[in-house]
Design a protein around this nucleic acid. Sequence first.
DNA 1: AAGCTACTCAACCGCGCGACT
DNA 2: GAGTCGCGCGGTTGAGTAGCT
Length: 314
Amino acid sequence: MHGKKEQEEYIRKGPWKAEEDEVLLNHVKKCGPRDWSSIRSKGLLQRTGKSCRLRWVNKLRPNLKNGCKFSLEEERIVIELQAQLGNRWAKIASYLAGRTDNDVKNFWSSRQKRLARILHTSATTPKSQKNKTKVPTFLDVPTLKAPKFSSSSEGESLSNSHSCAVPLIENSEVIKMVSLPDLIKSELPSFDTLNVEQEFTLFESYKSIDQNQQISFPQIPELQNDLKFPLGNQDVLARIDESCFIEDFCAFDAYEFGIGSQHPIGLPFFEPPGSFSTGTRDGIDNFKSSDSFFDDFPTDIFDHMDPPASPSNL
DNA sequence: AAGCTACTCAACCGCGCGACT
DNA sequence: GAGTCGCGCGGTTGAGTAGCT
C-alpha cells in the first residue's frame, strides 16, 4: 500500500465528507480559523491548508446563507459594488451578511452567462424568429418611431434626462464596441427578478401606442458616457432615424434596461455608498412610489394599459 | 421517459502579497 | 535583500440538478 512518506504526501481532493467537516470544525473550535496548514501537518486531515480554509469560509462558517438565493436587495448591492469595485468579490461579499466571495462570484458569473446568451440570441436569431422568445421585446412593435429630442434638450448632453440611451444594440457593427465585461459593469437593472406580468402589460401598452406618437426614452442613470454611447453622441444621433437601429436597440432592449422590470430607469438605481448596512429597500420603494419613470411617457399611454392581473387570477 | 440545455454550486488552481527567516 | 511559507483572492471547471422539449 502506501509508504509513510507517500501517506504524508497524499493530498485528498474533491468533495468533503461529513467526518472531514467535523475534524475541521473541531480544529477551528480549538485554534480558531487560522493555522490551516497545520491541519495537514498534524495529520488531522489529508487536505491542503488552502482547501481547509476554503471549506471553512464557504461552507462551515457560521451564519452562512447556504442554498438561499440572492434577494433583490443583495442583487442590487452586488451590481452596484461590482460597478464601483470591479471583480473584488471578497470585498463585495463583505457587504453582504452570510455571503461568501464564492457566492458573489458564482452569482455574477451566471448572470454574465445569461446576459451573454441573451446578447448572442439577440444578435444571431433571425428577426422572424425573435418573437418566439419567452419575454416579448419591443422588437414586436415593428414601426415604433425613433424618439426625437425636443428643442429644449437639443444640444444637451445625452447623458442628461430624456436622452435616448442607446448603449447596446444587436447590430453587430455596433455591438463590438461594447465588450461584454464592460456591458456587465454598467449598472444594469436586475433582470433576474423581472416581473413578467408587468413586462407584458407594459409591452402590450406599447403595442397600443399610436405609432406616429413620439415618446421620450427615459434616462439611464449613472452609466459611463463611453458605455452609453460607444459610437459617440453624434453617431448615435445619426443612426437614431434608421429604423433598424431602433428596432435592434429595442430588441436588445428595454428588457435589459429594466423597462417593465421591477426597477426604474428614471431613478437612481442604487443607494449611495454607505447605506448598504442599513439593508433598507428605499431604492426599490422609492421606485414604486415614484412617477419619474412614467413621467417620460405621454400621459395617455396609460389609457391603453390594463392593470396587471392579480396573482389570484393566475 | 429520455435527451438536452441552462443554471447552480463546490472545489481546485494560479497568482500576488505580506510576514518571517 | 533573497527565499520561503501561509494566506487570501479571482478565475475556472466539473458535477449535480432543474426545467424544457
